[in-house]
Design a binder for these strands. Structure first.
Lengths: 243, 243
DNA sequence: CAGCGCCAAAATGTATACATTGCGTGCCTT
DNA sequence: AAGGCACGCAATGTATACATTTTGGCGCTG
């Protein structure tokens, strides 16, 4: 939605490179050379450069003395990114409460929380993780908007784009669904509380709750890392990064 | 220091454009066209593009559907940026206290605070604003490092680069030095308290103090805006922006 | 008169050739 | 043999020509 959908060469290079970085194919510190990449993608250096430039904006690459390198993330950085997300979401929640959130957005996030409930079946094995993941991402997106601040929403968006700061990154497919379900129950209760606090204009409480929510996510991540042998899919990068 | 010193065409364009944006010559929302800029700077479109791309990274420009526009900042955004800075510096201070700051950095920031004292002469009119401004920037830079987190330092750096979020942006030359001096006294007292709280490992207190410090900066800004007729120099952009 | 669609020109996207820079290697000098 | 200078390669920086997309306006039509 935020992404310009263009099918130009730049976009293809952007998508391709982003994927390879998130996959872990391109490890942190790897220098990206324009010519080999251009040859690999069968395009000229120009759109490659353009794509790399945008990946710097996204925080996945860094500019070196000359050229670009893949940004390095260690376990410490992962933890810090989640901490940061919690702080920013806390701020968003507090400001939403203090300044009074747009009723429309408040209704929207309430609806999302309600819909999240439908992902939880009777049986723990019955949880709709995919749907939860999508709705959870929506929750955090709307939360970012609730403060009604372009500046804050923008920085929050930046942080969430860091490959692991996203709250949906910790929902791997096949990992011990029963105990994951436990985490999600807790997270869902927190969603409810955060929205309630904003509705009640209790800024400080909303902020504290949002921070706690992120702390839960961090614990989830630590759990995932601890069992990373059984991981596949979108979190593979984390498994590689923290090796 | 962070800035690559290169004297290439790209760097020249970057410097030139940045200056014109901060000057207010290029107002928010202005679309930047490559060809006219290239002609103006007597260079080709390539380095112009490159420079604009980097200005997106700095947060001064945005990418539109196609091309670039100068990012728009309103008074609300200015306030939010300062709020955000306070939150991030608060986080840095808290983490520094919780995790234990590097003694070397702690010594460094203590020295900066001490040196800041030397800027205050007996007479209010005797204040060395320039030196204060420089040291104050150092204080905030070191504070950003104290958390020992690349991720947090990076985002904080981003926010501080926003033209007005920087705590040194509110020290215009000729404006009512006596009452400015009052603000600086307060700010300096806060500097001291923040460092003390970090040294004492009082995370929550350090966080609260850093936030309060930013709130002081916001009040300073509001004061500056209120009297903006008498402004010149680096804050001229604010005067334009909030008109 | 409003709305739709198409055309032209202006602006960006892309390719490619050439310039410059930085670094490593090897030879020459002492 | 060791040090330094120079040459050359490889990579990015820059210019420019060409392709594609976007946009705004004009005229047609309902």
């Amino acid at each position: 939605m935020t992404e310009a959908s263009g099918s130009s060469h730049t976009m293809r290079a952007l998508t391709e490179l982003r994927q390879r970085i998130l996959n872990g194919e391109l490890q942190g510190g790897t220098r990206l050379l324009e010519v080999p990449l251009a040859e690999m993608l069968q395009i000229s250096r120009t759109p490659v450069r353009e794509a790399m430039s945008r990946l710097v904006e996204e925080g996945l690459l860094e500019r070196a003395r000359s050229g670009f390198v893949v940004r390095t993330f260690g376990l410490d950085d992962v933890i810090d990114a989640i901490e940061l997300r919690g702080v920013l979401e806390g701020t968003a929640a507090r400001l939403a409460a203090e300044r009074g959130a747009e009723p429309e957005l408040l209704a929207k996030i309430t609806a999302i929380v309600a819909e999240l409930d439908t992902c939880f079946g009777e049986d723990p094995g019955d949880t709709d993780f995919d749907n939860y993941s999508r709705l959870n991402a929506d929750f955090h997106r709307v939360l970012a908007q609730l403060a009604g601040s372009k500046v804050i929403a923008r920085e929050l968006d930046r942080v969430m784009r860091l490959p692991f700061a996203s709250p949906s990154a910790f929902l791997p497919d096949k990992v011990d669904m029963v105990s994951r379900r436990h985490s999600l129950d807790l997270a869902q209760a927190q969603h409810r509380e955060i929205v309630a606090a904003i509705g009640d204009r209790e800024g400080a409480r909303a902020e504290a709750l949002a921070r706690e929510h992120a702390r839960t996510a961090r614990r989830d991540l630590e759990y995932v890392i601890a069992r990373k042998r059984s991981l596949t899919g979108p979190v593979a990068s984390i498994a590689l990064i923290v090796d």
